[in-house]
């Protein structure tokens, strides 16, 4: 059975700290236990941080929606900020440590898939995570 749980956040760094408790409630409600929350919290935190940093929504709001079923957790992050410019993303070079640009790298390692679309004035990020949680190889 599919369940959906929403979270509305202020687009501030402080508000992003609500993501962890929200996920823990979600895991509890699905009887999944706490293992595996950490990587997903980090990935969603990185998505939301990118929205705060780059989209900077005029209404000051981020919306998270989590849809769960038997074998996956799908998280949708939306904001009404500036459109994401993929050309602005520079893939990190392992031989040349850089200061920024690691958020998407982290998300792509933790999530099964991550996608972006622009719908009217809204940025839509969708990230899918496997259930049971598989820890990324490091």
């Amino acid at each position: 059975m599919t369940k959906t749980v929403d979270l509305r956040l202020d687009a501030t760094y402080l508000a992003l700290r609500e993501i962890g408790p929200w996920l823990r409630c979600l895991f509890d409600a699905n009887g999944w236990g706490p293992d595996g929350i950490g990587p997903i919290e980090l990935a969603i935190h990185e998505l939301a941080t990118n929205s705060v940093d780059h989209a900077n929504p005029a209404d000051g709001v981020l919306n998270l929606s989590a849809e769960t079923n038997d074998d996956s957790l799908v998280v949708l992050l939306t904001d009404r900020g500036r459109e994401f410019d993929e050309s602005s993303v520079t893939a990190p070079d392992a031989n040349q440590p850089q200061v920024r640009g690691y958020g998407l790298m982290i998300i792509e390692q933790v999530a099964t898939s991550v996608s972006y679309s622009r719908e009217d004035d809204t940025n839509c990020w969708t990230a899918q995570f496997p259930i049971p949680i598989q820890h990324p190889s490091t």
Binding site: G20, L42, H45, E46, T49, P97, Q98, V99, R100, Y102, G103, I106
Partner: peptide, 16 residues
């Protein structure tokens, strides 16, 4: 307890 990429970036900048 928790480090994200922004926290990491502050450390990387300090190292550089």
């Amino acid at each position: 307890e928790f480090v994200d990429s922004a926290g990491l970036a502050a450390l990387v900048k300090g190292m550089k």
